[in-house]
Amino acid sequence: MTSQAVFQFQTAQENIHPLPQMEQVTQLEAKQVNVFYGSKHAVKDIHLSLYKNSVTAFIGPSGCGKSTFLRCLNRMNDTIPSAKVTGEIMIDGINMNQSELNATQIRRHIGMVFQKPNPFMKSIFENIAFAPRLYGASKAECKQLVEESLQKVGLWDEVKDRLHHSALELSGGQQQRLCIARAIAMKPSIILLDEPTSALDPISTSKIEQLILELKKDFTIAIVTHNMQQAARISDYTAFFYMGDLIEFNHTNQLFHQPSQQATIDYLTGRFG
């Protein structure tokens, strides 16, 4: 883009914060987060908070760093050797972006669901019970967890007779809900979803959207989406990313109806991306 645009983005910084103060509780706060893939600067100086029991949508054109930023929030970028994440990600008063902290422990508390449904090549039951069992859940607890989580994602009635069948037998939408069930079985405080519906049909998509609204009661949710209507429908806050920068972050209503940045307007009106 032009240098003028870049200039605008920089002046935008002070407009983003603070958000209109309501009675939200900050669940997670990212400060000055930068991500480099080798020498590529993929995420630039991002400051953003997730609020308890709310849904935050990340939107922006392809390649702008939404997934990369999302993956910082549960240290999944640790698994990419070339990725380097700097900055602070505060949760419960501790900066979790420190290499000496054990990433696996963090991921237990911050679940993630991916774009492509990726159930394990195991039975439906095992898909959910697998991780809790490793962390010491007893047989009975596992059973209960499986039922509870499947109930929550509305899958219980569909699969309760074939819990020990392979999860790969499920349809794409069911698989994705299973993946969500698998994540909430760990009882995380935050769930990160990376384009969870982009591989699904409209009916499965709307089921998952309903589900997200439901889950908001128990969890804090961040969702990456390319579907603007989806963001408008389900999110409380929306963050607009562009070329690695966070351009605008606001209440979803605000951002969609009174965007403060030219880039946001351009994007929302479909002029690029």
Binding site: I106, H109, N118, A183
Partner: peptide, 15 residues
């Protein structure tokens, strides 16, 4: 083995 399997497991906090 598809990389997604590994990713799914790591994202659950499995070592």
């Amino acid at each position: 083995v598809p990389k997604e399997q590994t990713e799914a497991s790591l994202a659950l906090g499995v070592t």
